[in-house]
Simulated scan of single mutants.
Amino acid sequence: MKAYKLGVLQGDGIGPEIVSATVKVFKAAAQELNVKFDWTELPMGWEGIEKYNDPTPRYTKEMLNDCDGWILGPHDSAAYPPEHKAKRNPSGELRHTLDLYANIRPAKTMPGAKSVVGEADLIIYRENTEGFYTDRNMHIGGGEWQITPEVVVSAGVFTKKAAERIAHAAFKMAMQRRKKVTIVHKANVIKLGTGLFLNTCKEVAQQYPEVTVDDYHIDAMTAHLVRRARDFDIIVTENMFGDILSDLAGELVGSLGLAPSINTNENQAMAQAAHGSAPDIAGKNIANPIGIMLSTVMLMDWLSERHHDAKLHQVGQLVEEGINSCLKAGTMTGDLGGSASTSEFAEAIIARIGELAVK
């Protein structure tokens, strides 16, 4: 039986609490289904600075190349020493150096979460390596120039290759769902950059004739999400717009603290919750771990497809059912109106997993 090697990067702030809770839950599900994981802890964030004087140590990146996938906890790069704050943050560094070009962020209503848009179930496919995020689209240098104390120029990079591959990823998923893709851009103003993105996505769309395609400007799209989120299925967009839209969508369907994501290429995948490190509640054992847990569910699905191993999908499904069962029963953390601590919530999920596995 293959043992899947999974990296564990706990990160900063609430990271160690929510990542540890996640690993415990997935260990329980894996045991029930006789799936073997080799959990490998690797330094990142403050731990990396303390051990290697680097928030994303070379050692960690080299070890990740030997992993089937990994969990990335949140980082608190805003608090790092100036010499590290000036570099790419750990998330951006891993996305860039490992070319994890697809950031996939679902937004789906859940039991116990107060959605302000009713029922919704959509996925945002965000191009993850270029656009206006200058720390990710330069081989060397930051991609910003301060011409005078009063003038700054920031570069945005758009390539046909990047647009093609994220578009294909989005359309392939659409074929498995409701066969609808929405392209989000700003081609009326950023005519060359996002115009290239829009036109390339439309070219890719011709290879998927069963999929219905529409497109919206980013500013209009924010209003459409608020008014009719349920109408959207797959949204594909460039880096910065995807970052903004996914945070909005996560909050609309319940809470950004519930929002999962994975970062992928053809060979690697990184589970990463959409929220930050919440240093104000770090160490209090009150953080909601659902975001990183559902991100790991997504990782299980990715691994299942890549390795043609249905049991990995079953592990993820068992955890997701355990989470939903707890929420329906009113067992939840304080941010959702409950009273469970992070560790208590994890233990409740583990108990539900045991009950579900017997059934």
Rank of each mutant, 00 (worst) to 15 (best):
N128T: 02
T129S: 10
T129P: 04
E130N: 06
G131F: 01
G131N: 12
G131A: 05
T134Y: 06
D135Q: 13
R136F: 04
N137D: 11
N137G: 15
M138Y: 12
M138D: 04
I140P: 00
I140M: 09
I140Y: 14
G142F: 09
G143K: 07
E144Q: 12
W145Y: 14
Q146S: 13
Q146L: 09
I147G: 03
T148S: 14
T148L: 03
P149K: 13
P149A: 10
E150T: 10
E150H: 10
V153E: 13
V153P: 03
A155L: 15
V157T: 12
K160A: 09
E164T: 08
R165C: 00
R165A: 01
A167N: 00
A167M: 03
F171C: 10
F171N: 05
M175W: 02
Q176K: 11
R177L: 07
R177Q: 11
R177P: 03
R177M: 06
R178L: 11
R178H: 12
K179A: 09
K179M: 08
K180S: 15
K180A: 10
T182S: 12
V184C: 06
K186N: 09
K186D: 05
K186F: 03
K186P: 02
G193R: 01
G195H: 08
L196Y: 05
F197D: 02
L198S: 06
T200R: 00
C201T: 07
K202Q: 13
